[in-house]
């Protein structure tokens, strides 16, 4: 029971982190039709910028400034790169972001080198807030939860209660009409791209100390973010939240479980082979849930795409 509670909290932390990434991505995707492959790269840039700033000015300054830099960089890339490619169609756009992801990884390695950076949590949060059983919950994890929820509420407020939010919402569904009404849709695109990448930057700043700051961090997280928004459904902030939490808990509980596939085989009436090395099914006999945990979201995505292509909460098909 204790472990269950702990896992619930850990899953929440991971899920909310995914949400910060997927919120920006789903806005960009639904508005511009671009699957931004470089989204996780902006997350990485956030972590590296924050690391660099934190070595001079401390963690908190990094938390404030790094996402801004990332957002400006994102807006710049939209303005001078993506907008140019936009005229060629969606596939080149997607491939552009794909190449961008490669390029950003190389540039990061060029400036910061290839090994892991010692980017750490701020000292003020380096204590165990409470513990359940023997497992301690670090104060920093609780801080992560609060930051993510604050961002979610702020986004929700902006999107539903402000004029800018109304325009964005309208542009999500009827970009042509919005343009016809005299709104500067390219400007909106640039803004949304900037804000979306800045959100990814925030996620990088606060996740970097926990999940590690290294050149492969974007690649590790890259495709799972797409999985999240596809499962959640396009353009739906709530869908993104739901899918993020679902994936967060799913991977956490899969990793925490001690379920063995041998149990299923035994249940099916099969006998455990005496000589495991000679058995054709030896891999199935030794398979455990934690081994396949990270691929569960992909299975779920394929399943959802086959039965319900517009995702859990999406309003229109892909």
């Amino acid at each position: 029971m204790d472990l269950f509670l702990v896992n619930l909290i850990d899953g929440l932390v991971y899920g909310l982190l995914l949400f910060m990434l997927s919120a920006g991505l789903t806005l960009i995707f639904s508005m511009m039709g671009v699957l931004n492959f470089a989204h996780a790269s902006f997350y990485m840039l956030g972590a590296y910028f924050a690391y660099q700033i934190s070595t001079y000015l401390g963690f908190w300054t990094g938390l404030l400034i790094a996402p801004l830099i990332v957002g400006v960089a994102g807006a710049g890339i939209e303005r001078y790169g993506l907008r140019r490619v936009h005229q060629f169609g969606h596939v080149p756009e997607l491939i552009f972001t794909f190449g961008l992801a490669l390029l950003i990884e190389e540039v990061v390695q060029f400036f910061w080198g290839k090994s892991q950076k010692a980017y750490d949590t701020p000292e003020i949060l380096q204590f165990a807030l409470f513990s359940i059983g023997n497992n301690s919950i670090a104060a920093y994890k609780v801080f992560m939860i609060f930051v993510s929820i604050a961002i979610f509420l702020a986004l929700l407020y902006v999107l539903t209660r402000t004029r800018v939010g109304m325009i964005i919402q309208a542009a999500l569904s009827y970009p042509k009409t919005v343009e016809a009404l005299g709104h500067n849709v390219p400007m909106v695109f640039m803004g949304v791209f900037g804000v979306g990448t800045a959100l990814a930057g925030v996620a990088g700043v606060i996740a970097g100390p926990v999940l590690g700051t290294f050149p492969g961090m974007a690649f590790v997280l890259g495709s799972i973010v797409f999985v999240t928004i596809v499962i959640g459904g396009l353009g739906s902030l709530w869908g993104a939240l739901l899918a993020s939490l679902l994936i967060g808990w799913m991977t956490t509980f899969a990793a925490a479980s001690s379920f063995q596939f041998a149990d299923i085989l035994l249940f099916l009436g099969m006998e455990r082979p005496a000589d495991m090395a000679a058995s054709k099914l030896r891999d199935l006999w030794t398979l455990t849930m934690p081994q396949i945990g990270p691929i569960l979201p992909y299975m779920l995505m394929v399943f959802i795409l086959v039965v319900r292509p517009h995702g859990l909460m999406g309003k229109r098909g892909l």
Binding site: L35, S223, V227, K280, L287, I292, V302, L305, V306, L318
Partner: peptide
Amino acid sequence: GTVFAMISLGVGELIAACSIIIVA
């Protein structure tokens, strides 16, 4: 379009993951 692209990503990831799990 995107549905095809994402299914191919999912299936690709699944089979790639299997390659490490199914040693036989």
